[in-house]
């Protein structure tokens, strides 16, 4: 029998967190983004978690090499389903629209499947693209993020949302911060002082 992990490592920080934290990473360069992705995936795989990455910029070759250096076979974890890679558009923008409910259901099922499949925990790191700003349903992004925080209370999928500060307006970045309880600042995960509880945010 698999017992849920009491705490997990995010990989890019030495801090330990309970599974199901909702973290926002605002990045300004690609190296910062890639380093967080690689380390997050590695730590998840190392701890036996079901791990997924949704990004248009994931480089399988680099990832395989990175995992290989740490004794993990990319092919093996991919084939066993421990590691899932998918594009942002493929996951978030099916039918060319952003549907928060579908995404929330997806996360819920992802967690449920992980539990069924015996993973002690599940984690997802995903990069939101700027297309969301022009996509049908894109205006519900902040609502979606707030509901993700609520979902994770019951289905604790450790989630890191990556936003490229170069592709979003500053005011939008500030609003995004407000719906994430944690955020990455200079490599450290901190409680987000701008965070507004989902209930309060959705009520406003």
């Amino acid at each position: 029998m698999v017992h849920p992990l009491p705490t997990i490592s995010l990989g890019f920080t030495a801090q330990q967190f309970p599974p199901g934290v909702h973290i926002c990473q605002i990045f300004g360069d690609d190296d910062e983004r890639q380093e967080a992705v690689l380390k997050f995936l590695l730590s998840g795989l190392q701890s036996g978690e079901r791990t997924s990455c949704f990004s248009e910029r994931i480089d399988e070759k680099i990832l395989a090499e990175f995992l290989g250096r740490h004794g993990i076979s990319y092919i093996e974890v991919r084939d066993t389903g421990a590691l899932t890679l998918a594009g942002t558009v493929e996951i978030y923008f099916q039918n060319n629209r952003f549907d928060p409910e579908r995404m929330l259901a997806f996360l819920r099922k992802f967690h449920e499947d992980s539990v069924i499949q015996g993973y002690p925990a599940a984690r997802v790191i995903g990069e939101m693209t700027q297309d969301i700003q022009y996509m049908p349903g894109g205006g519900r992004l902040l609502e979606y993020e707030a509901k993700v925080s609520m979902l994770l209370r019951e289905h604790p999928v450790t989630t890191v949302c990556q936003y490229d500060a170069r592709l979003f307006d500053g005011a939008m970045i500030m609003d995004i911060l407000k719906v994430h309880p944690y955020m990455v600042v200079r490599g450290s995960v901190v409680n987000n002082p701008f965070f507004i509880t989902p209930e309060e945010f959705l009520a406003s």
Binding site: R166, F168, D169, G170, M174, V185, P193
Partner: peptide, 21 residues
């Protein structure tokens, strides 16, 4: 936090709107 994020924003416009908000 704002000081930390300012460095990642690409231009003045983005910084101004971030700070104002």
């Amino acid at each position: 936090i704002m000081q930390g994020i300012l460095g990642t924003l690409p231009d003045e416009q983005s910084i101004f709107s971030f700070v104002c908000r």
